[in-house]
Computed example of a mutant assay.
Amino acid sequence: MDNKNKPKLGISIGDTNGIGPEVVIRTLSDQRILNFCTPVIYASASLLKHVRKALNAEHFQFQEVESAQALVPRKINLISCWENELEVNPGHPTPESGKASLDSLLAASRDLKAGLLDGLVTAPINKDNIQAEDFRFPGHTEFLTSYFDAPESLMLLVSGGLRVATVTGHIPVKEVPARLTEELLIRKMTILLDSLRKDFGILKPRIAVLGLNPHAGEQGLLGREEVEIIRPAVVQMKERGYLVFGPYPADGFFGMRQFQQVDAVLAMYHDQGLIPFKTLAFESGVNYTAGLPIVRTSPDHGTAYDIAAKHIASETSFREALFVACDVVRKRFEAEMPVV
């Protein structure tokens, strides 16, 4: 693939005291990555040199550039986001590591919004210490949805043919039932179906919808949400011609591996979908934000302070996030090309 057509992928460094810098450097130490994309790291030269030395990652080399308008093909590019020397204290979230993660994210997002990048891969942040005047969000997904003026988005976890999305995101479990409405489910199903077609190239996607309550409510005996909200939404989508099925009891659905018969699963809340997903695909899982005008992926793990700087963090999920971003960028580009 020629350099002109390789996706330019921004990489926000995440919390500098977590495993983000480590998995970024481990991933990009394999120079074959440059055959697929042009990586652009948003951090500082001193941080990358510090982590490179700690990892003994002699194959990791980067080119510092002034801006995303001056990227060097076939090189790992670095755009500096802070000037002062950053104290690195692995395993311990600090105000400084939170500010650095935000500076990196904001700089990459600005360049993406300006059309200088083709996609964004975000390393893990600490949702507490990143909070600031210009970041009052529960996480990346909510921030990027707001920043890119998307009406709504959808958290979609991806590992090969396993795809699990969630209707509600980072909210307390006790608030989930009150948030569920027929209209919300229809919007989320629509985003999921559109993304499966546009971003993953599935022409007639099939999605399974999970129930909220044990045994999918047992016809109302264990809860009314399935009868009054979830099933009517599924029926509406079926009447519109979509291949939507459910609601299914969540435990049996995953226990019997019924997810292998559909292209994606829609869970009602965060842990209902992410616990089985991470059990099945923790190291290879990718968090994809569907419904945005831009492409954003991330690894499906957090900052992992407990193993930071112990040199045991796996880069597999981050590498997969990079490749998923490349694939989606190309699929979107191909979809926009005129038919000859």
Score class of each variant (00 low, 15 high):
65 V>A: 13
76 I>M: 12
103 D>L: 08
65 V>P: 14
73 P>E: 13
125 I>E: 07
136 R>S: 06
160 G>W: 09
164 V>E: 08
104 S>G: 12
136 R>Q: 12
80 S>I: 00
106 L>M: 12
165 A>Q: 08
66 E>W: 05
81 C>T: 15
134 D>M: 04
111 D>H: 11
87 E>Y: 01
109 S>M: 06
105 L>Q: 05
128 D>P: 00
130 I>G: 01
81 C>W: 06
66 E>I: 04
78 L>V: 11
140 H>F: 09
101 S>N: 08
95 P>V: 02
145 T>K: 02
169 G>P: 08
153 S>L: 04
138 P>N: 13
95 P>E: 04
77 N>D: 09
93 P>E: 07
122 T>R: 04
108 A>V: 13
110 R>Y: 06
73 P>R: 09
148 F>G: 02
137 F>Q: 05
110 R>L: 03
79 I>G: 01
157 L>M: 15
108 A>W: 10
91 G>N: 00
153 S>T: 14
97 S>K: 10
167 V>Y: 00
85 E>P: 06
95 P>Y: 04
129 N>F: 00
112 L>Y: 00
137 F>W: 01
141 T>C: 02
77 N>T: 10
70 A>S: 15
148 F>Y: 09
113 K>R: 14
100 A>F: 02
150 A>S: 10
134 D>K: 14
151 P>D: 15
166 T>W: 01
136 R>I: 02
99 K>C: 11
144 L>M: 11
160 G>R: 14
166 T>P: 03
63 Q>L: 01
168 T>H: 11
128 D>A: 15
159 S>F: 12
134 D>E: 12
144 L>T: 08
162 L>G: 11
101 S>E: 10
120 L>I: 03
131 Q>V: 10
97 S>R: 05
127 K>Q: 06
144 L>C: 05
116 L>Y: 13
64 E>K: 14
132 A>D: 12
160 G>N: 12
77 N>F: 04
151 P>M: 03
94 T>W: 05
158 V>A: 11
99 K>E: 14
70 A>E: 15
72 V>P: 05
84 N>F: 00
154 L>F: 02
96 E>G: 01
155 M>T: 03
153 S>G: 05
115 G>I: 13
129 N>L: 00
162 L>N: 11
126 N>G: 11
161 G>I: 12
132 A>M: 03
95 P>D: 11
153 S>A: 13
140 H>P: 02
102 L>Q: 07
150 A>I: 01
79 I>R: 06
111 D>L: 06
150 A>Y: 01
